[in-house]
Amino acid sequence: MNPRIWHIATNTFREAVRDRVLYNLIAFALLMSGAAVLVGQISIGIERLVVINLGLTAVSLFGIVIAIFIGIGLVSKEIEKRTLYTVLSRPVRRWEFVAGKFFGLSGTLIVNTFFMAIGVFVALLYVSHSFKHADAGILVALYFIILQFLIITALALLFSSFSSPLLSAIFAFALFLIGTFAEDLRGFARLTHGIARWLATGAAYLVPNFSALNVISQVAHDNPVSRQLIAYNTVYALAYTVAVLSATAMIFERRNLK
């Protein structure tokens, strides 16, 4: 990788870690252990279901919150603190800065998710006392969640490059919500006619498709995820992320940093 992008990425990672973002893991660990123990006590035959559903949903939500709250500050904080000026007065191109920030935050989230995954599996082991073959599905679900993180990080970065932190947070969160119901939005588009149909369809394609990336219930019920879906989702997430990052680079390239 381009050395400047790498250094910016590692610096972003270091900043996030020292800003105590990883402390969220403590909260997560508490949640998972609490749930595992409680569920183990009640023992109504759905321990696996609860642990997987709760665990994966928590991984997803914690991560989205981190992605948004750190993401929205990635550019605006550097401008506010004027650290950006000293970076850009060096032979660093603006798009390299965007890329570095993206990789830094994504890396942080992947590391965070890795630790959380361990937590989920430990809790699962505790309630089930063994692993099943179907547990591989959990890995797929986690992989999809990471793809979601990539998309949300790119979006938060996009908004951060031209908007205030508050607005960025609102936009990013709104897109996350709408994206979760993206399939319904497309279904709704199919039911309408005329202008409404065009608008709804356009919106449905612009909005990130998080519904296809959410296989938590499916995996909790031991239903496998098709390989085709894995392949398609991977390419989709990468294409969408690249699109958003290009837009960010374009906007940032022309921005006057007053």
Partner: peptide, 19 residues
């Protein structure tokens, strides 16, 4: 950047349709 934007977005739309 604009070229990449258009190409990748088109790719994402196509994949979305297939998904």
């Amino acid at each position: 950047a604009a070229a990449i934007l258009v190409a990748s977005f088109a790719a994402s739309a196509l994949l979305l349709w297939r998904i």
